[in-house]
């Protein structure tokens, strides 16, 4: 079975993942992400290959894959679109964003478009409530959406035009993100905005109103606060 789905190169990648953990079984989640990046879903073949590599039964691997919502048992397609419809996002407009995207794509929750390009999912709180209503494309942030901005993103993706995440790199595709989850150091950390305005909201107000934390004690031989203050004047304000 392994030979069907696993190239020598993939086998070597699996071993690199396994080597990160003291106990090989801990690698199962990362291996599932790796398989999903290659196959667009968790196939029976992938489960068999992981089980063989980790010396587990297929039932043990399958039990893990079915517990977590990010592992899909049907092909996701090129792009995964998530719209947060947990309470905060929903009432601030996420319900309308979801409806607009769903109407545009002609698909509902957990469905994939007929051409295989888009998969839509109502997602739970994305740890971005300050940026509500929140959408994700291939799990990259698309913050502060409106129905029309969200549809615009879909149209651009459909036309193959470049789309930038609001806090992150240019949108790639679902497979590429799944690969990032298996191999997190993807070389893209410097892409996109370093931080956005909402993450700086308090710092900006503090600067404008001249507020700061108490300085570090001065009798210390190390005086990190001095360098903090020296930097401050050099930094561009938001």
């Amino acid at each position: 079975m392994t030979a069907d789905v696993i190239s020598a190169e993939t086998a070597a990648e699996m071993d690199r993942i396994i080597a990160r953990y003291p106990n090989s079984r801990s690698a199962v989640m990362a291996l599932l992400h790796l398989m999903q990046s290659q196959q667009g879903e968790i196939t029976i073949g992938a489960i068999g290959a992981i089980a063989e590599r980790l010396n587990l039964t297929t039932a043990e691997v399958s039990a893990v894959s079915t517990f977590y919502t990010m592992y899909k048992r049907r092909r996701v397609g090129e792009h995964h679109i998530g719209v947060c419809t947990n309470t905060l996002c929903a009432v601030l407009g996420g319900d309308a964003v979801y409806q607009a995207v769903s109407d545009r794509l002609g698909i509902g929750h957990n469905e994939t478009s007929a051409d295989g390009r888009f998969h839509l999912e109502r997602i739970e709180c994305q740890a971005a409530c300050t940026h509500a209503p929140v959408m994700t494309v291939d799990w990259e942030f698309m913050d502060d959406q409106t129905p029309s901005s969200a549809v615009d993103v879909i149209d651009k993706l459909a036309a193959g035009e470049p789309v930038a995440s609001t806090r992150g790199p240019m949108i790639r595709d679902f497979a590429a993100t799944e690969r990032t989850l298996a191999f997190p150091d993807d070389g893209l950390a410097a892409e996109g905005t370093p931080v956005d305005a909402l993450m700086l909201a308090g710092l900006t107000v503090a600067r404008v109103r001249g507020m700061a934390a108490p300085p570090a004690p001065t009798e210390s031989t190390q005086q990190p606060q001095e360098s903090h203050q020296a930097d401050e004047s050099e930094e561009p304000s938001a």
Binding site: P194, V195, A206, M211, A212, A213, E232
Partner: peptide, 18 residues
């Protein structure tokens, strides 16, 4: 009560994540 940026003090430095 004033704002007291400590963890967030340098977040506007564009290369703080490096």
């Amino acid at each position: 009560t004033p704002l007291t940026p400590v963890i967030t003090e340098h977040w506007d430095a564009p290369d703080l994540f490096t």
